[in-house]
Design a binder for these strands. Structure first.
Length: 782
DNA sequence: CAGTGAGCGAGCTTCCGCTTGACTT
């Protein structure tokens, strides 16, 4: 039978994501056509803020170019439909999307129905269709207020930075606070002074230990000794003391599984367990979602659908048995959560693995384990604490043992933690012991320990912090992290640690020996460091715009958005109350603030007596000796800071050292040899050519002429091998040996030579033919 | 692979949250 009408769609459902559309269409059947809007279809115009400041903040919305096609298509579909179901997400942004759709597609209220569901299951969707409603204008207004506030903040503050700090910079409600967190953490670390103390541990065994059985165990003294002397006194007492068990306490303990993943917790765990960056996690998750392997990946909800709970239970019963099953629902505790979706979980929990790339498989497996584990029983332990008295001292040794009685969810999943404290925990094995039992002492060691500074943020731990503060949304965590790096506020990098010596006192038999151990500390991998410009912008914004930079600013305005959503407040009034004083501050700041350069005085130059300062120059951070402007004075001398040097931490000595370069090494073949440090590291310059110094071998401050000439000759030798052919009648044409094999260079453009061709036999004509037929591989920059 | 320091100027830069390709190499 032919379909009743081919051109008329009875029901058009519009959702945000095309993958979601596909799934829903399957669940709804033939009478429903499901289309997607691809998120928002309109945004504020960029002209004049897109806000009419003289007309009660009336927004001017436009359809961005990349959405025009989508909108045109939706318009066509809507015209043909009898009923249009607006099924965008059940939150502020989703409500606004539905409203914009209504406006742009000119949908009459009579045929428009707003539906919402927070899980994609047949029953949930059918229920939503029965309970359809109209658009909630208050909620839409809350979104408009949010949008307009962000635009006003971003587009008023950024130009202030262009004028007062540097062009193209940016500021915003979310990104500026993210940078602040990193800057403040860095300063905590800079100002941190480690304190050392001595931690004493002993190895003991029971006096009735049977031969051949493991019986040694470790116990730690219940206090730290503040210096070497105190530790020594204690060890001396131990050397003549007797040790006996004064107390044994056994206590059951348990550990519960973690809730299923949200965007933020997925990013954290993928970072810790798989080493993924935040954006990498999102790209892989997106592919899993599009392939139908997982539910939506941008969510702040820990909720699982009834269907998911049932399947998870079934899987656990089959795999692990009744004892391991513990069905539970988690409650979202993060600030500002809007819970329009489920938690991130496998679409089909019965599938333990999927086909895909390595990264996809690993991320899927992580999601699968976390989801299933969330429905499993607590792990149960028995903790034993043994107290050991020393006959010659007041301090006591404490030994702790932990026995796993029931593994529960640990059978499947162990959550990783952020703090990488290297304190090896004294936990685990304990031999059978009785109260009052005497113990045989083996060695007792006092090891020096330093307190450690708070850790720098990783991308993922910054997301965690932002979420705790209610700043940003699942869809913006990854882009925000990228923005603050793209602006140069923050750099993600590794730092080699520093070494320090730890003193160790060891009591063995009756004698105490002293030794040293080298510890590496402050080693960082893929951590976020503020760059100079990030610190300058942060300090500027905090000085003039304290309110925006406040960690509670978002939380405060969110409360007002909630009042707008519940109809208790008018959105234009809220915006007006914010904008009037804010705009005044912007104007005042433009008037009163100085150009912000992060200037710092380091003291006088011992040679000239002139002031040495560091500041941000036009092209980066520089040191300057002497003050400019005074016509009588000599011009100041300048030197750029090296990579890794910081305006905030550089010392006078380090700054003065920068003026020792470039340094002349005398003449060679009638031209001067000069050593310097450039963009690509230390170099020797000769006859306008640059030769890199060998990393780890040459020191630009110490290198002599002989070594410099050696480097030059080495490079000339290399160059010789580089040239395969030249042509006397065409000086711009070369056949060269490159990193990736032979290639043709012609007028600064490079062309790849096909594998079959022998480059040594090529004629000029062969080359020219290749050049005209091939697009050049890569244009040389500049 | 190639590459190693500076101030006229015109016009541009920018926000946060929803979404997915279109582009290179």
């Amino acid at each position: 039978m032919i379909q009743k009408n081919l051109f008329m769609i009875d029901n058009l459902v519009i959702v945000e994501s095309p993958a979601k559309a596909k799934t829903i269409e399957k669940l709804l059947g033939k009478e429903y056509h499901v289309a997607s809007s691809m998120g928002h279809i309109r945004d504020l115009s960029k002209k004049d803020f897109g806000i009419d400041l003289n007309n009660n903040y009336a927004p001017e919305y436009i359809i961005p170019n990349d959405k025009k096609k989508i909108v045109a298509n939706l318009k066509k579909l809507a015209k043909e439909a009898k009923i249009v179901w607006l099924a965008s997400d059940e939150d502020r942004e989703g409500e606004a999307i539905a409203w914009h759709l209504g406006e742009v597609l000119k949908l009459s209220p009579a045929i428009t129905r707003r539906i919402v569901f927070s899980e994609i299951t047949k029953t949930a969707i059918q229920e939503s269709i029965i309970n359809y409603r109209s658009i909630d204008q208050n909620l839409v207004n809350a979104q408009q207020a949010r949008r307009i506030l962000d635009r006003l903040v971003g587009f008023e503050l950024s130009p202030v930075l262009w004028r007062k700090v540097k062009p193209s910079l940016s500021a915003g409600r979310v990104q500026s606070v993210a940078v602040r967190l990193i800057v403040e953490r860095e300063r905590e670390i800079i100002n941190f002074s480690p304190k050392s103390s001595f931690r004493v541990t002993g190895i003991f065994k029971p006096d009735d230990a049977e031969k051949g059985k493991i019986h040694k165990f470790v116990a730690e003294v219940n206090k730290r000794f503040k210096d070497k002397n105190e530790a020594l006194i204690f060890l001396e007492r131990c050397s003549t003391g007797e040790f006996n068990v004064s107390d044994i306490v056994k206590k059951p303990s348990k550990k519960s599984s973690s809730p299923p993943f949200t965007t933020s917790t997925l990013q954290q765990e993928a970072s810790r367990k798989l080493g993924f960056s935040v954006s990498q996690t999102m790209t892989v998750a997106q592919r899993l979602y599009e392939a139908g392997h997982i539910t939506y990946m941008r969510t702040d909800s820990v909720n699982l659908s009834q269907l998911a709970l049932n399947v998870a239970k079934k899987v656990i019963l089959e795999e692990f048995g009744e004892k391991y099953s513990n069905r539970k629902n988690y409650i979202t505790k993060s600030k500002g959560a809007q819970e329009a979706h489920e938690a991130i979980r496998p679409a089909y929990i019965e599938n333990k693995t999927i086909h895909g790339t390595n990264a996809e498989k690993r991320l899927y497996e992580l999601i699968w384990k976390r989801t299933v584990a969330s429905q499993m029983s607590d792990a149960q332990f028995e903790k034993t604490t043994v107290t050991i008295d020393v006959s010659t001292a007041e301090e006591k040794f404490i030994a702790q043992g932990e026995v796993l009685k029931f593994d529960g969810f640990l059978k499947l999943y162990i959550e990783s933690s952020d703090d990488e404290s290297n304190e090896d925990e004294i936990k685990g094995f304990l031999p059978p012991l009785k109260p009052k039992q005497f113990l045989i002492r083996e060695t007792i060691a006092a090891i020096q320990r330093f307190t450690t500074a708070p850790p720098r943020y990783t991308e993922a731990s910054l997301v965690k912090k932002l979420e705790e503060l209610g700043i940003g949304r699942p869809s913006t965590y990854a882009p925000t992290i990228s923005t603050i790096q793209n602006r140069g506020y923050v750099i993600k990098e590794d730092h080699e640690g520093k070494e320090r010596k730890l003193l160790i006192l060891t009591l063995k038999n009756k004698s105490i020996t002293e030794s040293e151990q080298v510890e590496i500390y402050n080693r960082e991998k893929s951590k976020l460091f503020p760059d100079n410009i990030g610190m300058i912008v942060n300090d500027f914004l905090i000085e003039y715009f304290k309110e925006i930079m406040d960690y509670n600013f978002t939380a405060t305005v969110e409360k007002e958005f909630d009042d707008i959503a519940s109809g208790k407040m008018e959105w234009t009034k809220m915006i007006d109350r914010f904008y009037k004083p804010f705009h005044k501050k912007v104007e005042n700041t433009l008037k009163v603030s100085d150009y912000s350069k992060g200037e710092r005085e380091l003291g006088p130059d011992p040679d000239s007596g002139k002031q040495v300062i560091v500041r941000m120059g036009r092209y980066g951070p520089i040191v300057q000796i002497g003050i400019a402007g005074d016509k009588l004075a000599e011009k100041p001398r300048y030197a750029s800071l090296l990579k890794g040097q910081n305006l905030e931490t550089i010392t006078l000595e380090e700054a003065l050292a920068l003026f020792k370069l470039p340094r002349s090494l005398g003449d060679y073949e009638d031209k001067e040899l000069v050593v310097g440090i450039g963009r690509f590291g230390p170099y020797v310059r000769h006859n306008n050519k640059f030769y890199s110094l060998k990393k780890g071998v040459d020191d630009p401050y110490k290198i002599d002429q002989n070594r410099a000439i050696e480097l030059i000759n080495e490079k000339i030798e290399q160059e010789k091998n580089r040239i395969i052919r030249t042509f006397s009648d065409e000086p711009d044409l070369f056949i060269l040996n490159g990193h990736w094999g032979p290639y043709i260079s012609y007028k600064k453009n490079n062309y790849r030579i096909p594998k079959k061709t022998n480059p040594e036999e090529m004629t000029k004509e062969d080359c020219m033919k290749l050049i005209t037929s091939l697009p050049n591989v890569k244009k040389t920059k500049k």
